Amino acid sequence: MDVFYAYTYGTAGWMAIQAMPLIISPTVIIMLLSPEVREPSPLEGYFARSLGFSLLTLGLIIALLTGSIPLTSTTTSTAITTSQTDPKAPYAVPVLLISLLYHSTVAFYCYARYTTGGTFCFALGSVVSAALGSVALWCVMFASSGGRISRKTGADKRTSGWPFKNSESARERKKVARGKSG
């Protein structure tokens, strides 16, 4: 499985895990979070369920707009591309960046709450969100382009000859030069 797809499924799954207790039993969640024992108000229950539905929706949108769940019957290449023929092209990288920002913010918030309160749940949330954010950062840096492959030589244009000589690229250039002259 591609790292990008693993990230989108992991993000959707983590958001679903967070959403289920909020949707199923907001009363228990609110009672656990409240410093005094009391019955939660209907407004608190509404906000808890709304947050749960929002997390589920956000996870599903991330999976759909990044192309992890295909919306067409034909599949394209697994790399994140920016070509106009790819139906997910306009949305994959922006959604990836927004979800990276989300995971980074949640990881920072959970870590700050963990250091002040020492609750295990915040530590778990911080670790999982930081891991998902790290994978998203990796996808943004390394998986968001098809590379710069030369049409003539087939070599990657981003390589250089410093500090070591790129003998493979030099060999391909000689082949191309011989083909043009002969």
Rank of each mutant, 00 (worst) to 15 (best):
R171C: 05
A6L: 13
M31K: 15
G125R: 03
V176G: 03
A123K: 06
C110R: 03
R173L: 12
R148N: 13
M1L: 06
L65Q: 10
T85N: 13
G118I: 01
S25M: 14
L132W: 03
P40L: 01
A177Y: 08
F47S: 03
Y91I: 07
P90I: 06
C121S: 12
T57F: 06
T72C: 14
F108C: 02
E172K: 13
L101S: 14
H103W: 09
G179V: 07
R178L: 07
P26W: 04
L33T: 03
E172W: 04
K152D: 15
F108Y: 01
G182Y: 05
L124D: 00
G10V: 05
A89E: 00
G52P: 02
G182V: 07
F142A: 09
L32N: 14
I80S: 07
A12R: 04
A63W: 03
V135G: 01
T66R: 03
A48V: 07
T76M: 08
V28C: 10
G10R: 04
G117M: 12
P35M: 06
F164L: 12
K88S: 13
V95K: 01
L101K: 03
G146D: 09
V127S: 00
P90F: 04
P40H: 00
S181N: 08
I149F: 05
P87T: 02
H103Y: 04
P87V: 06
S68W: 11
Y9K: 01
V106E: 00
